Amino acid sequence: MLSMEWLEKAACTEEDPELFFPVGTAGPAARDTAAAKEVCAQCEVRVQCLAWALKAGESGVWGGTCAEERADLRRKAQWSHAVRSARSARSDGSSPSSRSDRSSRSSRPDRSSRSARSARSAAT
């Protein structure tokens, strides 16, 4: 279970919780989101709050981000992880281009056997 000890120091505990859980993304909801982010900007535990929301999959405004922004952060983190994994695979001595060259060569038909077949069928 994730610890929430940091919540005791959170600036949002003195605010109306509904401010941090707006319904929608336009009009009053957009104003509430902006106001909630202003509270977060002054909070000493914003980083811990954001980490919590990313791990727990929370909705609403947490750590100065809305759910859509956290989804973007997760996608970027997954992309970064994929890039690091690819770099790591390359550092083990095999490069993606050398692997693809080998696989493309093995999947190509052998031209010499094709021309030999053609010559045999033409002779008969």
Rank of each mutant, 00 (worst) to 15 (best):
R74P: 04
D101M: 02
R102Q: 09
S106L: 00
S88N: 08
A67M: 10
S88Q: 13
S85T: 13
K76T: 11
S106A: 08
R74Y: 13
G63T: 11
A77M: 02
S103N: 06
Q78D: 14
C66N: 15
R102S: 09
R90I: 07
A89L: 11
Q78N: 08
A67V: 13
E69L: 02
V83E: 05
S100I: 13
K76N: 12
R84V: 02
R84N: 02
R102N: 06
E69F: 08
E68T: 13
R70V: 10
S103D: 05
P96N: 00
A86T: 03
S95L: 11
A82S: 11
S100V: 14
D72V: 13
A67E: 15
V83W: 08
V61C: 10
E69K: 07
R70G: 10
S104Y: 02
G64T: 05
D72F: 13
V83Y: 03
R84M: 09
G60W: 00
S98L: 04
S80Y: 06
D72C: 05
G64Q: 02
T65M: 10
V83A: 10
S95N: 06
H81C: 13
W62P: 07
R99H: 02
S85L: 05
A86E: 00
R102V: 09
S95V: 00
S94Q: 09
A89N: 04
P96F: 02
H81Q: 12
G64C: 02
A71K: 11
W79G: 13
A86G: 14
G63A: 14
A71Q: 15
G64M: 01
Q78C: 06
V83H: 04
S80K: 10
A71I: 00
D92Y: 03
S104F: 00
S104L: 14
A89D: 06
A77D: 11
Q78E: 15
Q78S: 12
V61P: 13
R74G: 10
S88C: 01
G93T: 11
R74F: 04
A67R: 15
R90G: 09
S104N: 06
A67W: 12
G64W: 00
A89F: 04
D72I: 05
S97V: 05
A86S: 07
R87P: 04
G93R: 08
